[in-house]
């Protein structure tokens, strides 16, 4: 993979300023990140070997100023923002891939303007709710408490890497500026996600799923403890042209815990 390039997108005055990272070459893949932001060391880097990956960061994530969140007043404006970015990039019917929080946005976008999406890959998206399988409240847990809900194998490299964050939560005032920025980044990103998903991440997506007409892949970690894998079938049943793939030995963060398998499934689905 070539190193991702980063730039700021100009969406016009009074609009949020967003960082756009892109890498690779090939057919366009428009990626919407989850509550942890854009990371290239997992499946995204793999995908950039076969696609031209475009990954915007929502306000509070990456280099996108958090103040931009004030300019997105409700969920509809968030979904529309997704299309605004696509338009700014000149993307025509791209493969739309969203993970978790971003999977919800991707699904809503495909339901809102179905003709403007080429194909849709939803990776353990949030947005549908069943009382018998409540989605874990990621906004009401400390990082240390949250981690076991994100991974199948807490000894996997991805899980161990993320565990490093918990060591930053100390009473000592000995953090480096980079560590402070990292911590604040987590909070600001979660703030953005919480604006649309707190307290119950049910935005009525289920009632709109029938509007999605494009070929859709619903990809889920078979051991997802944050959002039960049973949601995969539930979503696929309501989308006209959907297929479900469960990835074994995998928790909620598919692209981090099983990067090769996740990338391979997306590639297969896209026929690239």
């Amino acid at each position: 993979m070539t190193e991702p390039k980063s730039r700021m997108l100009d969406l016009g005055s009074g609009r949020p300023r967003l960082e756009l990272q892109d890498a690779g070459s090939g057919p366009p893949l428009f990626f919407l990140h989850g509550a942890g932001g854009v990371a290239w060391d997992g499946a995204l880097g793999q995908l950039a070997k076969h696609f031209h990956v475009y990954a915007p960061s929502l306000p509070g994530f990456g280099k996108s100023p958090s103040e931009g969140l004030e300019l997105i007043e409700d969920a509809l404006e968030l979904w529309q923002l997704g299309f605004d970015v696509m338009e700014a990039l000149g993307l025509d019917k791209p493969l739309l891939v969203g993970e978790s929080f971003g999977g919800w946005i991707a699904a809503e976008m495909a339901a809102l303007r179905p003709k403007e999406v080429g194909k849709l890959a939803l990776l353990a998206p949030v947005g549908v709710w069943r009382d018998e399988s409540p989605v874990v409240d990621l906004f009401g847990l400390t990082i240390g408490e949250l981690l076991p809900f994100l991974f199948h194998d807490m000894k996997s490299k991805a899980a161990l890497d993320m565990s490093q964050l918990t060591t930053l939560m100390s009473d000592k005032d000995d953090r480096t500026q980079a560590q402070i920025d990292q911590l604040i980044g987590i909070f600001l990103g979660f703030r953005t996600a919480a604006k649309f998903l707190f307290p119950v991440p049910d935005t009525g997506l289920e009632r709109r799923l029938w509007r999605i007409r494009v070929p859709t892949l619903v990809l889920w970690g078979a051991q997802d403890r944050l959002i039960a894998p049973s949601y995969a079938e539930l979503i696929a049943k309501r989308v006209k042209n959907a297929q479900v793939v469960l990835i074994e030995r995998c928790g909620h963060l598919l692209m981090a815990e099983q990067p090769e398998a996740s990338a391979k499934e997306i590639q297969r689905f896209a026929g690239v």
Binding site: L141, M169, D173, F187, R191, A193, F198
Partner: peptide, 30 residues
């Protein structure tokens, strides 16, 4: 409960930066 004592969205970025130690530190101690 530390998980909700600084829930996302309670404070602005500027306030978070100003209170970084108190807010991310060991709540029990503070």
């Amino acid at each position: 409960y530390p998980g909700t004592s600084e829930a996302p969205g309670y404070r602005s970025e500027a306030s978070l930066r100003a209170g970084i130690v108190a807010q991310f530190g060991n709540t029990t101690q503070n």
